[in-house]
């Protein structure tokens, strides 16, 4: 018998609302809004209130997928990253760096988003970097 609440930050958007994960016997069973956090002051939107639901979903992506002949196949990170890097290189050589663009994510941390723009600007050589929240 074990129940605890673990405070963390909602992953849905960039607001950074405090959510409290309710864990019962090692199983995530629900969320509550963080009452003491100045960002959301005890409130959540509907996404925050349901932000735990994807965790045990069958459809959740657990491994990288690579598309071969129009069909996705599960694979390891090595192959997935090699595929992406190889294709990006090829596109850059054939069509130039500005033919590549990236959309960063609100579900990532500041630091990860920083690295994404670094990758686009320094490694790829384009300013085509934007954010999913502006879609």
């Amino acid at each position: 018998m074990y129940y605890e609440c673990i405070p963390t930050t909602c992953t849905y958007c960039g607001c950074g609302c405090s959510v409290v994960l309710q864990v019962l016997d090692g199983h995530l069973v629900g969320v509550l809004p963080g009452k003491t956090n100045p960002v959301n002051e005890g409130s959540l939107c509907i996404k925050g209130w349901t932000s735990h639901e994807f965790v045990y979903r069958e459809k959740r992506l657990k491994n990288p997928l690579v598309k071969k002949d129009g069909v996705f196949f599960e694979t390891g990170w090595e192959e997935a990253l090699d595929t992406v890097a190889g294709k990006l290189k090829k596109i850059k050589e054939e069509s130039g760096a500005d033919s590549i663009a990236a959309l960063a994510s609100a579900k990532c941390t500041n630091e990860e988003n920083y690295l994404m723009q670094k990758l686009m600007r320094a490694a790829i050589g384009t300013n085509n970097i934007d954010h999913c929240a502006r879609l």
């Binding site: 129940y3 605890e4 609440c5 405070p7 409290v20 003491t36």
Partner: peptide, 19 residues
């Protein structure tokens, strides 16, 4: 079997089941 109350987690109170 257990007592449901608030526990200081860091400096903030959150629900906890004391057993």
């Amino acid at each position: 079997a257990g007592f449901l109350g608030l526990r200081n987690f860091g400096s903030e109170p959150f629900p906890f089941l004391f057993t």
